[in-house]
């Protein structure tokens, strides 16, 4: 940093109402560390294992869709069915009220928004089941087609930023099952993401 920048920095330090001290304390308290699944027991361990299995299946699917592994419809179906089986109640039953023991990454919002949490877990199962049924469909682009800003005038189109992406009102399971697996998987991944965003502490 040059002198040119150093001088105003000093002045600003004084100006910002003691910011230096207060903020340094604040910042010091914020140091975090990565927490792995190590040390998990009981239901927390069970659901972490479940999530790991979903992640492994997701990886297998993504690798095929990305082309880093050859596409195999049989394997696609098997992996999607595995995710389906881990959704719904198989998942929600592993989140008993207030189960936040270390090293859980669950957020308490799960229990204040239990219905939404359940809905997302059900949606995940439904979408994964639809993906299994889409496994033999012709392949297509991962990304939503050019309609992004098309027609309806940019950002007003509900599809583009509407509630569907956050876990409500998206395409039906029937619609998904008729899509290219690439597109169906995109919707499934968005459900994972919506749930993680709301209910998982990022480590």
């Amino acid at each position: 940093m040059t002198d040119h920048h150093r001088r105003p920095r000093l002045a600003a330090l004084g100006l910002w109402a003691g910011a230096g001290g207060a903020a340094a304390v604040l910042a010091a308290g914020l140091g975090g560390g990565a927490v792995a699944h190590v040390g998990a027991t009981g239901v927390v361990k069970e659901r972490m294992d479940l999530m790991m299995e979903i992640g492994d299946a997701t990886k297998a699917i993504a690798d095929m869709l990305r082309g880093t592994q050859p596409y195999d419809a049989e394997r696609m179906r098997a992996m999607a069915r595995r995710i389906e089986g881990h959704g719904g109640e198989a998942m929600t039953s592993l989140f008993p009220d207030g189960s936040l023991d270390h090293p859980s990454e669950a957020l308490p919002a799960i229990w204040t928004e239990w219905e939404r949490f359940e809905r997302l877990a059900d949606l995940m199962a439904d979408q994964a089941g639809a993906l299994a049924r889409a496994a033999d469909n012709p392949r297509g682009p991962m990304q939503r087609g050019g309609g992004m800003m098309g027609g309806s005038g940019i950002m007003s189109g509900s599809g583009m930023m509407g509630g569907g992406m956050m876990g409500g009102g998206g395409p039906s399971a029937e619609d998904l099952a008729a899509m290219p697996p690439d597109a169906a998987f995109r919707h499934l991944a968005q459900t994972c993401s919506a749930c993680h965003e709301a209910y998982r502490e990022e480590q």
């Binding site: 979903i54 992640g55 299946a57 583009m160 919506a194 998982r200």
Partner: peptide
């Protein structure tokens, strides 16, 4: 690049937190 369209990381995990919003509201388009 793939994670920015799909939200899926190479290990099969899916973005949460603010990055979920970044992908869903931005980079996927």
């Amino acid at each position: 690049a793939y994670s920015l369209v799909s939200g899926v990381k190479p290990d099969g995990d899916v973005y949460g937190g603010a990055m979920a919003r970044v992908v869903q509201g931005g980079t996927q388009f």
